[in-house]
Design a protein around this nucleic acid. Structure first.
Lengths: 361, 361
DNA sequence: TTGAAAGCGCTAACAT
DNA sequence: ATGTTAGCGCTTTCAA
């Protein structure tokens, strides 16, 4: 330690005060010196331990105030091994569904005095992997993840074995033995399509996201199940899965409408697709019955209101974080999958009967 | 160190291997031992330094693989003093505007190999303060914050002095000398309202968020400025500021419509208010010209499409993070405020003339 | 109630 | 090119 440059006589005990280190934060050592106590006492005060005298508390707090001391949590984490942080990986924090999930997870994590690290996978397995490993390097206490399709799940096993708890949301693990919270996508879609069938429809178009996505394929399966139950033949010409979420669908819809047995109803596989379908119907100046999967702001403002199969992202976040903390608290019971039910919200677009649609043509 | 319990003869050098510490991650020491090199070499390999032999690299990587080693970033942060993390505080990560900002900030932070900590203030100054101080305790490299109205800004000064860079977004600092990126709320509102005036409207209602919010008050000021320029008297009866963002507005709108000089147009102060207004108009079975501040999905799907004054949250995030990193790179030029222009998007609702509205009554 | 001191896992300076 | 070591700021025994 170089000490020859110190102009003022220093305490001679090897301590360099924060003031000598420009632009450096005060440490507990600094606080201890100013307060005239040991660092152990400072630590006790900062952490609100009981066995400290009133005088010490006052002296330490005064020193903290005057130095602008703020505990360095990196050091604390290193020492204690707990980071009080959770990592959240979703497809896209700007997506209406995931942003609600994000907020819900934040609320739960906050309640437990932890912080939340967030990232969007953008449906890219490589990006997901990178972010998850980054979170693990930060030693997050746990992970809430929506793993994109198409990637390897295997690399997570090492993290799991190393003691990082995790819970999958919105899609189940394929091979890993971890907790998950998912939505009854298939059942919800089945209900929505059956609702349309109940209004006389037999030619029902189906627009969804990329079919390699778990949620999309489940919803298509639900669509097919409803048709089958009603004895309606499945027609692949009526199914269109877009490549990107924001892709307009007026072209494929136009093709279906121009066919010799056009659809009288549409099942839209997610909220953005619903919006795209509404736009496409406007372009084609037609109205069909619509049921969409996933609720969205404005669904009850358009005319008619859009009947939807609603999910509950808030509940999903609450349950997921709850499961995660149970594991962190030592629960080693077998991993489980919780499936959330959907709810059909009737607003008008799904109750347009086949006869009404045909009459308007 | 207690060593009597070790059954197998150990190396005798005081090293406890990871295997002896159940559920503990391997450390560089473990990797060094397995690879038969020193920890310095392990560190060099992990950090991709150039001066390491091929053999060492291979041996270390093999050891890392077999032990499932992952560098402990808490220790790294403590040692280097840099956390490679940025804290973002917005009103609500689930809000359409802020979720887009969130995503944009994430993208920029990711590009710089850092991670993002996020939190929602919920417009509560106390919650904001708590989260900001938490981020500071974690020694984030920088902060991007939307500070809620009504709280003290002063406590941030200590963090600023301690070397935490920050940039304000969506509202300017009141007393602090920090960078900020804001939107020309006043000018945008003025433009939107002038647009309505251009279509003959003279009785224009104004619905906004809580008037103590910076953005809301600026937009109201823009509304008034447009009226003034056109020589239209300001009528407080036509202005309604809701207490909460999601509050329905059919009651106050109904009152205005029932008056003896009802509005023929509406200026909506933000996207959710626009949605509320559209809903309220439906309830009252009337149509008025509408211009809304802030774009939203579906704005071009309702009939007519909603003319809006659009902001650019993506640009806001990019610029904010760019400024932040400039500071982190040592830029000490005077702090600046960047004001983003708005863009009027014409879709139909704002081009309904006064005559057309009156004729339909 | 308190101070002293060890050590969490890493990086970087130093010596070889 | 590589091993050794000090020390980042904190928590937590251990003595006193």
């Amino acid at each position: 330690m170089q000490r020859g440059m110190v102009s003022e006589k220093d305490a001679g005990d090897g301590v360099r005060a924060a003031a000598e280190r420009p632009n450096a934060r005060a440490t507990m050592k600094d606080v201890a010196r100013v307060a005239g106590v040991g660092v152990g006492t400072v630590s006790r005060v900062v952490n609100g331990k009981s066995n400290v005298s009133e005088e010490s508390i006052a002296a330490v707090n005064a020193a903290i105030e005057s130095l602008g001391f703020r505990r360095n949590d990196s050091a604390r984490m290193l020492r204690t091994g707990a980071t009080a942080s959770i990592g959240l990986l979703v497809e896209d924090v700007a997506d209406p569904f995931f942003s609600l999930l994000n907020r819900s997870v934040e609320e739960e994590v906050l309640r437990r005095d932890s912080v939340l690290l967030t990232a969007s996978s953008d449906k890219d397995p490589e990006r997901a992997r990178k972010m998850i490993l980054t979170f693990c390097a930060r030693r997050v206490d746990g992970l809430v993840i929506t793993l994109p399709e198409g990637g390897d799940e295997e690399y997570l096993r090492a993290e799991l074995d190393a003691g990082t708890s995790m819970v999958f949301v919105d899609r189940p693990p394929r091979v890993l033995d971890v907790d998950s919270v998912i939505v009854d996508n298939r059942g919800g879609a089945r209900t929505g399509v059956a609702h349309l069938i109940g209004y006389g429809h037999r030619r029902i178009a189906c627009f969804t996201d990329r079919p390699d996505l778990y949620t999309a394929s489940e919803r298509i399966a639900g669509y097919r199940a409803a048709l089958e139950e009603a004895g309606i033949p499945f027609d692949p010409e009526l199914v269109y899965s877009s490549a990107t979420t924001r892709e307009p669908v007026d072209e494929p819809l136009g093709r279906m409408l121009a066919s010799n047995d056009p659809p009288t109803a549409v099942f839209a596989g997610n909220n953005r697709t619903s919006i795209n379908v509404i736009g496409a119907l406007r372009i084609h100046n037609t109205s069909l019955a619509i049921v969409g999967f996933d609720d969205f702001e404005l669904a009850d403002v358009v005319v008619p209101g859009i009947t939807v199969v609603a999910q509950d992202p808030k509940a999903m976040g609450q349950i997921a974080v709850g499961m995660l903390y149970k594991r962190l608290d030592g629960d080693i019971s077998p991993s489980q999958t919780i499936t959330l039910d959907t709810r059909l919200i009737v607003r008008g677009s799904g109750e347009l009967s086949r006869d009404a649609v045909l009459a308007a043509r």
